[in-house]
């Protein structure tokens, strides 16, 4: 019984982390059809920005509660700067090129940003546990869990449903959906696709950075965290169906529970359980759980 509850809670916490990272990725793909490997760098930059901001904030001895705002703010600023800069400075020249070509551009950017981060933050791990420790713990069925981790579930739900609402219930969001469905038609309708792309990519970058920032208090922020996370995020997005927010949520939950179940019941499989799940889903449903099957063109 305890194990079952633990699998559920651990799985949900892990899933919310995966979801926060995968959200920006699936948005960028959905709108722009770009598989963005540099999303891993956004995650890492967000984590670094948050960790160093929280560190400085705590050093300054200000009220700890404000630390959360500082953390999120630092990540958002970093995300906007990097995302906007990248889209305007580089990616917009690549639109219309082959998808794999654009993918490789993001890979090259990923390599470059790796060293940029090393230059800015050095190789030593950054540690920002204050926001995690501050919230204390709750006991779930005899097991203590940090409230910070539990609240990640809520944060992920709020951000996810917020984005879903903005997309499907607001005018601007509906414009975005139009672009997703038919880029050419939306140009005819007078939608400034270039602007939509800039906003989407920047938003995706901010979401990635925010994912990193929210993770920063749990992990130690060190070189290479972006590379670790990006393939996992891809797997989640593929499981759920590329470009679908609901899909990303379901994909995260599936991957999260699979991971937790593996650790509790069959630790040997932890390394590849998510990839096994991905293969299984793709074999049964090639377009992912919530992906739309592409009609074959004649």
């Amino acid at each position: 019984m305890t194990t079952t509850v633990a699998i559920l809670v651990d799985g949900a916490v892990y899933a919310s982390w995966l979801f926060l990272v995968a959200l920006g990725l699936t948005l960028t793909f959905g709108v722009m059809k770009i598989l963005n490997i540099a999303h891993g760098s956004f995650y890492a930059i967000g984590a670094y920005a948050a960790a160093s901001a929280v560190g400085a904030y705590v050093q300054a001895g200000l009220s700890p509660a404000g630390g959360y705002l500082v953390m999120a703010g630092a990540a958002a600023i970093a995300g906007v700067v990097v995302g906007y800069g990248l889209e305007r400075g580089l990616l917009r020249f690549m639109y219309g090129r082959d998808a794999v070509l654009v993918l490789l551009v993001t890979y090259a950017v990923f390599l470059i940003l790796d060293d940029v981060m090393l230059l800015i933050w050095g190789a030593n791990p950054y540690i920002a546990y204050q926001p995690d420790m501050l919230l204390g713990t709750s006991t779930v069925f005899t097991l203590p869990y940090p409230n910070y981790d539990l609240s990640l579930i809520a944060v992920a739900a709020v951000i996810g449903s917020g984005l879903w609402w903005a997309l499907s219930r607001t005018r601007r969001g509906k414009m975005l959906l139009t672009v997703i469905h038919d880029r050419e038609m939306s140009t005819f309708l007078g939608i400034d696709v270039a602007k939509v792309f800039t906003v989407t990519f920047t938003l995706g970058a901010v979401l990635g950075a925010l994912g990193g920032a929210l993770t920063a208090p749990i992990i130690s922020v060190q070189p290479g965290i972006g590379a670790e996370v990006i393939v996992l995020a891809f797997a989640v997005v593929v499981i759920g169906g590329m470009g679908s927010i609901v899909g990303a949520a379901v994909g995260s939950l599936a991957a999260g529970f699979a991971h937790a179940a593996a650790v509790h019941l069959f630790p040997q499989a932890e390394l590849f359980v998510i990839y096994a799940l991905m293969s299984l889903v793709l074999i049964v449903r090639p377009q992912g759980l919530f992906g739309q099957a592409q009609p074959r063109k004649i």
């Binding site: 598989l35 998808a99 390394l271 590849f272 990839y275 293969s279 793709l282 377009q287």
Partner: peptide, 27 residues
């Protein structure tokens, strides 16, 4: 199996198989 897949799904499924082999070799 793979001949049925196209685009990104082909790419991701090939990736998944490679990662599974990686997991098996690590163990």
């Amino acid at each position: 199996l793979l001949a049925r897949y196209r685009d990104i799904f082909f790419s991701m499924l090939t990736l998944a198989f490679a990662m599974i082999l990686y997991g098996v070799l690590v163990k």
